[in-house]
Design a protein around this nucleic acid. Structure first.
Lengths: 384, 384
DNA sequence: CCACTTTCGCAACACTGTTGCCAAAGTGCA
DNA sequence: TGCACTTTGGCAACAGTGTTGCGAAAGTGG
């Protein structure tokens, strides 16, 4: 069924998460209590109570004042980023990238090593565990060094130790398909030996902290959603494969069996050239062969057709492109996709014009950052 | 942004709607308090309070008892269908169909007349107003006649008068595209003169009751969602055009500009035959020309390809087919679409097998019934 | 210096779902 | 028939939510 009953505890969690999300969205600039009240629809007094609790818990703090508008100036509140941390791990076919981020999503530390995703579960788990441990100790060392220089500035003590205490969990992103709800891998493309492996539970047992597992495209999309991209959008990833992450209503749409976002094997050319998946005329096959023969314009046009199908079906606000292939020729892909979408908008006569297209910001680290957001999202009520 | 703050009033509405939805779903058989508690996650005492309020308001009533399981037998509660009514109007190109339904969605009265959707706003509005008025008085008359025969049985008095008092509103379904949020029509296919017409407000002013406007496919999908089809599904409508209604999380997904569900102009054959919309290779063009030349197998295969794209993208539970064309050859369409989806499931190796396909129940009246549900849905927390 | 505006917290309040308890209404066995 | 037991479900007291009324604090502008 759709929803469950809500009690007073649930009510509080919901409103607290909402306020935290707005604090996060405001960034270092902060946001005033009255603005929080306007945005949430709660009364100022309710916001005061909620922010009071958050300040007691150390999650929020005062950060100066706004200019007066004729009376007492508004006090600005901000999220305390160091109050919580998360680690995001991006497992790719040949490399492992891990980041430690704070509550605001800012990367505090980063590591990268080579990895063979086909080396077996134990080897990969060991690698992940080593990198996670290294990330925390790395911060300890850095913090110790920084402390020597910053004794007089009154910087917060603790360093890596404090990070370990505030570590909310580890998020892992890797190529799908997989079952996000249970944290079990399916037939990861190219590595059938992973089929059925309970990655989440295995890693959680090893690390002793909560673990969340999701597809790389979903992680990237979530990272973008929490990184400022409001509204609904589709993140289209063009790399060795072609996938999508859908953000609807602030959270990632994963579908009934958490398999949503299979964008690459959308048939776009009935009875077209065969695809590795066994079907014919898949978007992925058409797009990647065009890329292989250097015809980026055609690749972008094909990708645009798929994007247009998606936009029409879901009526989303924006399309964001990412992945190695896009990064190599951003202009060609953006303009090619935009052209198709603009033509669609002209035909439809849609008010407000075509759906905008852009390259997803974040670069090569985006997926690892998004993986960390898998852990942080529930704190801000973005559990999807 | 995604969500708004919730206060105690909102909390109560939510839980009340949840309980009403479960009561509705249980049908005439009813449901016990403890079962409601289990399904909602609320405590039995909270459910007792909520159902107590509902009984005071006349929305719920006791309906016998279950067999004892060793102790005091459970009291069964049921929705009181006559406590609320809604009218659903289906405007098609050449006919107007209107139904009066009770809270449970059961059709109490029905009317049908010819209509020229191109006859101008005033003529159409007059027609709708006349049918709506006739529906209510029709019930008055029937109830009066029935009352004579049922004086001794103690049937509820009032008849049509009571219906008028409990009328929650009128839902109108018609071919899109349109803006559901504002109740304004766009370029209704074939009738450009409707572009920009504020149908909802114009009709609400005329009738004096709340009016909701939506696409016919969304209405049909909502009717199916409230008519017992749980989970997420896509309703694919094949008539003079080809559209889809998407149900995700119990409610209809309409998208940012409430234009979602544009299934027919999904490009499925790049650079294929031209479509009326100006693009090439649209699903609608391929499917309908196949139908026109009598090749139902090909039409079903094409439809199946589109359905498979949709299933992969959103990971939905089920596909339901409807519309005049499907009704004419249900077997061919269902098996054709099912074949494509089964092939997809085999390739993916999905646990649980292929997404099931079926003909949507309800027949020609389904869209009008769904239109009525547009009004009832908020009562049951299905506002989408 | 004072009137005015605006922010924001304290206290009392209305209302939510929860807990503890007990009466009611069955079953099953001696 | 009587009694122990199980299960349902309401009453009363309770903890905790957001709301309202009001006043202190902190500015601006004349």
């Amino acid at each position: 069924m759709s929803g469950a009953g809500v009690n007073l505890l649930g009510l509080r969690s919901h409103n607290t998460a909402l306020v935290l999300d707005l604090l996060r969205g405001a960034g270092a600039g902060g946001i005033s209590r009255l603005e929080l009240a306007e945005r949430t629809g709660l009364t100022p007094q309710a916001v005061s109570k909620i922010t009071g609790r958050l300040r007691e818990e150390g999650l929020a703090a005062e950060a100066g004042r706004r200019a007066s508008t004729g009376g007492k100036p508004r006090t600005v509140l901000r999220l305390v980023p160091e109050a919580g941390h998360a680690i995001g791990v991006h497992l790719d076919r040949d490399e492992l990238r891990a980041v430690l981020v704070d509550l605001r999503g800012t990367v505090v530390a980063e590591r990268r090593t080579e990895l063979d995703l086909g080396a077996g579960a134990d080897a990969v788990l060991t690698s992940v565990a080593a990198e996670v441990a290294a990330l925390v100790t790395e911060v300890v060392t850095e913090a110790a060094e920084a402390a020597e220089a910053a004794v007089l500035t009154g910087g917060a003590p603790g360093g890596g130790d404090a990070v370990a205490r505030t570590l909310l969990g580890v998020g892992v992103a890797l190529p799908g398909p997989l079952d996000h709800a249970h944290g079990v891998l399916h037939r990861v493309t190219g590595y059938p030996e992973w089929d059925g492996f309970p990655l989440r539970d295995a890693l959680a047992a090893r690390l002793g902290v909560p673990v969340v597992v999701d597809k790389d495209t979903n992680a990237a999309a979530l990272g973008l959603a929490l990184g400022g991209a409001g509204g609904s959008f589709a993140y289209l990833h063009v790399g060795t494969g072609l996938g999508a992450g859908l953000v609807i209503g602030g959270g990632v749409h994963r579908g009934a069996r958490t398999g949503a976002g299979e964008f690459g094997h959308q048939v776009i050319q009935l009875d077209g050239p065969p695809c590795g998946c066994g079907d014919r005329g898949c978007l992925e096959a058409l797009c990647l062969t065009a890329v292989a023969r250097g015809d980026l314009a055609e690749a972008a046009r094909v990708l645009g057709a798929g994007a247009a199908n998606l936009v029409g079906l879901l009526d989303i606000d924006r399309v964001l492109l990412g992945g190695r292939t896009v990064a190599g020729a951003a202009g060609a892909f953006v303009s090619g996709v935009a052209t198709v979408l603009a033509a669609r908008a002209r035909r439809e006569g849609v008010a407000g014009g075509a759906v905008p297209v852009a390259v997803a910001p974040g670069g090569a680290r985006a997926i690892a950052e998004g993986a960390a957001q898998l852990v942080l999202a529930p704190v801000f009520g973005r559990a999807g």
